[in-house]
Design a protein around this nucleic acid. Structure first.
Lengths: 360, 360
DNA sequence: AGCTGCATAGAAAACGTTAACTATGCTGCC
DNA sequence: GGCAGCATAGTTAACGTTTTCTATGCAGCT
């Protein structure tokens, strides 16, 4: 005696179906569907029998069938970043997830390790999943033009399918590309931060950038350079080092520069965690921050308050960025006929703590 | 002139379908499917025409239809945790995502804010999504028996559907429940850590626990108490405070205790970030660590090395935990007839740094 | 010449829902 | 008493794939 449901021969044992519930409750499938959706009058008695059957059979709807029949894109938001472990990205992820969950959306997450190709593949994958929106967070390493072109194509096809590409913390793809863009002002943030350093008398500042062609790096470096220029400090290319936005990278770069001869009075770390690495290297060389070396970071993650001395940095509202991205994604205004693209620019501000000293 | 595909009247503009591609290439839908799946001989010419049509129409398969027709549970792994922002969880998430992505699985993420009810709802939701596996990470606040019973039900129905519930960093649900369990030994870790404190002469140790009925709290506290007993130190209930595993909680609790009278020589912070809060409160009160107050944490996240003095803590291999969870999830051995459940216990070890001093 | 067997193709039946149509009693009204 | 109108219910055609199950050539063999 087999315990098969009413749906006859079946590939695998995938739990009871809506038809099983209908049979068990003695009603038609349509009625069960109606009880579930609650969008059509159903008599009290039928409703109760159906609900009882659902409970007894431990029925759970098949989202795939539902999505297919309903035709609508699923209420799933894809969130793509380089690495979950970064505190700033985690903050943004939290903002996205909160906002999404509140509206009954699910969040699909994917990581790229910063490889553009992998990013493209993921967006493509998310499109196949019929994600209602795809949020890309963090800078891009803008390699070949091919990348930009492919991403533009994806933005178009996503938009054509009623979905939306949201670029968060990175520059727009270009005019007329149907994507929402949410940026924070890296250039001005870095400008303000370097200005602070300059105002304290620093003239030789080591800049620890991320990857060579990474948009965030480029923008922060641009702000830094502009401040230098405005203060009449000559450009010194040897004071810019490229690495990664990790603690290890900050440590190694600083250590190398320090052992090679300490020819700078301050370090502009591309990121707070990079600054943590700078602290470690400085301490190791017997240098104390800020007396022997001033250090600033960027992002203002929680860590900035736990470093000793507390880190002077630029506050970036990552959680707000994420929240806003999710709001735009669910807002549906991108389905309007004349929509061309959203663009928001978040302001940042310098948070002065105690990692910078006045140069004598 | 409308630009409709071959699939006739259609609800929304959801891009071209497989049928459209077939029509465009002059073959049957079956052939297109075969080219895509590459599981059946197709002539060179047909294959090429199909591939060309796919490119020209910018076709992308509908995952929902695919999942429905194929009958198999989708290769999606659900990952449920309290909060993405916790460093330890982020590490675990990274392990899961890495492992999943490597095998072509997608990761769905959901956060519970530590509310058991929300956790149940999420698992249920993931079941509806036909997730191939559901990974729960972090301790449980084991409230009413109802929770445990419902989760058991979910484990059963997940397993019946060919899916799997993986409990990671939390105790098993009970015997015979078809779920995989991956734990790290909180009890022994805490025992070792408190033993270290005791060996340094500390006798009055403030224990900063998490939520009252949180499994992680309970286990770590149990290890702590056992060490106390083994050293013949009398139990002092007033030295246990319950809060949250956050920096803010560590700060507030310590501050309150410190201003009320400093009657302990060491603090066992339930978590490294809690320890960061302890440091902050101690500094604020003019106490220096470890001279005036010894502090230990738990988890050994990156932060532990950035605190000054560096934090003595217990190393937990979170990334490994996540990786292992994902491996078990994809392994499929849980589909074997006699399978009753997996159980792994990860070892931890104390990492001695400089936040503990010998009591005079 | 007639078969067997293989490579390739298409037709059609699932998969588990939703939603647009129909169908059937009833109630209430002229 | 006939009929409009409403509250319910059931039928059935999608939705976009995959996967049998059937064709159809065509080579190779006896």
């Amino acid at each position: 005696m087999t315990d098969e449901g009413a749906s006859g021969r079946r590939r695998a044992s995938t739990g009871p179906t809506l038809a099983d519930v209908a049979a068990h409750a003695g009603v038609s499938p349509a009625t069960v569907s109606r009880v579930l959706a609650d969008n059509y009058p159903v008599s009290r008695s039928a409703r109760q029998r159906v609900q009882r059957s659902i409970r007894e059979l431990n029925y759970s709807a098949n989202t795939h069938a539902r999505a297919l029949a309903a035709g609508a894109g699923s209420k799933t938001m894809a969130f793509i970043l380089a690495d979950v472990r970064g505190q700033s990205f985690a903050d943004a992820a939290h903002g996205v997830e909160q906002e999404a969950a509140q509206r009954g959306w699910l969040t699909l997450i994917g990581t790229t390790q910063g490889v553009p190709q992998r990013e493209l593949a993921l967006v493509q994958l998310m499109r196949e999943q019929r994600a209602g929106a795809v949020i890309l967070i963090g800078g891009v390493t803008d390699g070949a033009d091919e990348y930009r072109q492919k991403m533009t194509e994806l933005a178009n096809s996503l938009h054509a399918a009623g979905s939306l590409l949201v670029l968060c913390g990175r520059p727009p793809l270009g005019d007329g590309v149907p994507a929402a863009v949410i940026e924070h002002d890296n250039e001005n943030g870095a400008y303000a931060l370097t200005s602070h350093l300059l105002s304290q008398g620093h003239r030789r500042i080591l800049f620890l950038a991320g990857a060579e062609r990474h948009s965030t790096s480029i923008e922060r470096l641009a702000g830094h350079r502009r401040a230098l220029t405005d203060f009449g400090v000559p450009d010194a290319p040897e004071l810019v080092e490229h690495g990664e936005f990790t603690r290890a990278s900050g440590y190694q770069l600083t250590r190398r520069r320090l052992t090679a001869g300490h020819d700078f009075t301050a370090v502009f770390a591309g990121t707070d965690v990079v600054a943590a690495g700078v602290y470690a290297a400085a301490n190791e060389q017997g240098l104390s921050v800020p007396e022997d070396l001033s250090v600033v970071g960027y992002d203002d993650v929680e860590l900035a308050q736990d470093l000793r001395p507390r880190l002077t940095t630029v506050h970036v509202p990552y959680e707000d960025l994420g929240r806003t991205a999710a709001q735009i994604a669910v807002a549906d205004q991108h389905l309007q006929p004349g929509w061309t693209g959203d663009h928001r620019l978040f302001k940042t501000h310098v948070v002065i703590r105690s990692s910078v000293s006045r140069v004598r």
